[in-house]
Nucleic acid binder design. Structure first.
Lengths: 191, 191
DNA sequence: CGTTCAGTTGACTAAGGTCAATTCCCGTGG
DNA sequence: CCACGGGAATTGACCTTAGTCAACTGAACG
């Protein structure tokens, strides 16, 4: 159940059996069917989620239009850090794109962990740093590249996304509508 | 010299005189003239910068076009976290928009600090969390709002920016060109 | 088989970009 | 004190890109 997550943690910080046990005792597991929501807009995000298997996306829903921010696959963490840190209602929805097994850790348990085993502060820092790097990367993509360049970057760097995610979600991730993605694809094959 | 920064730190973590001294002993100061660069694209960002006075922006330069990411004023930290954390060349330029006094802390000193005074791990985590929240906020603005909405949000939430920053930088921050910002402004007064 | 939904395509629209001319603002030096 | 120079901001004419809407195709599933 917790092999993947403990493997990752051990890679990050040196822990003895007892400390590791203290960590895993705080974990919970849940499964999700495809299309189910792990978090809904308006909820306060009280957990950090680790994907054992499956695939998630988060999206904003603005005036009925969905705006996909990112896709996450197995062995990755995700949480709406904004809501999680500040304890305010989330603007995001987190949805299963496939059936998923999710391990999760509550904010209060994480805070206890920081006190009981201060080494976990480092874990907390690295989580935050990774969250930063992820959104920063997405941001640079949106700001510095054209839609076509973003598409090419995604194909090159994360071809897996195209194998596991429907194209209208990819369009939304790229910041365009499905017809535009179609046209970009057509332009590119005709070159 | 270090009053502002120590005040901020003390607010974050409980430190005795000796620990605080350990921190300040690692700080350095530098001044910048308006338009000077604190960091140039291609450099590896080895420092975290705290603004004692003045105002900075960071921007990307892509095919000769500048792309402003954010403005920072006194009593705020900034660093190119991507370059800082990963030790890779920065894609950003950090420029003084006014004459500045900058306090800075090197990455190696920060790492020593984490070892000498582990409480500073918390400081590191909060720095990363804030960096995340900042870019996350900017990203949501770009992704969920139209150019006009972004302009109105900026006026409402950070009117100071309009008092201290030339409009062509603001346009670039909003993700548009100066003529477009001009037209948005005109449309709005005629309503 | 028929329903449903993703993906594509065409015709048209809208938002923002580009380029160039003009005006405004401000600092500097005669 | 005023005139000039230069960059910032505005404006107009035109262009490019993506969005919208609707029709159509095709594959998936019950």
């Amino acid at each position: 159940m917790y092999e993947q997550i403990t493997k990752q943690i051990s890679h990050l910080i040196q822990l003895d059996i007892k400390e590791l046990e203290c960590f895993t005792s705080k974990l919970q597991v849940q499964t999700l069917k495809k299309k189910e929501l792990l978090l809904q807009e308006g909820d306060i995000c009280k957990y950090a989620y680790f994907i054992n298997s499956g695939c998630l996306r988060y999206f904003y829903s603005v005036e009925g239009v969905e705006n996909t921010g990112q896709f996450f696959f197995e062995n990755n963490w995700y949480t709406d850090y904004d809501s999680f840190l500040l304890g305010k209602p989330s603007k995001q929805n987190i949805e299963a794109l496939e059936d998923c097994e999710i391990v999760f850790l509550s904010k209060t348990d994480l805070q206890h962990l920081f006190v009981e085993v201060p080494k976990f502060e480092k874990f907390g820092r690295i989580m935050a740093e990774n969250a930063y790097l992820g959104i920063r990367n997405k941001n640079e993509m949106l700001v510095n590249q054209t839609a076509e360049e973003r598409y090419l970057t995604l194909i090159k760097e994360r071809p897996k996304v195209f194998e596991r995610v429907p194209q209208h979600y990819i369009a939304s991730y790229l910041g365009i509508k499905p017809p535009s993605l179609s046209r970009i694809r057509r332009r590119l094959v005709h070159k």
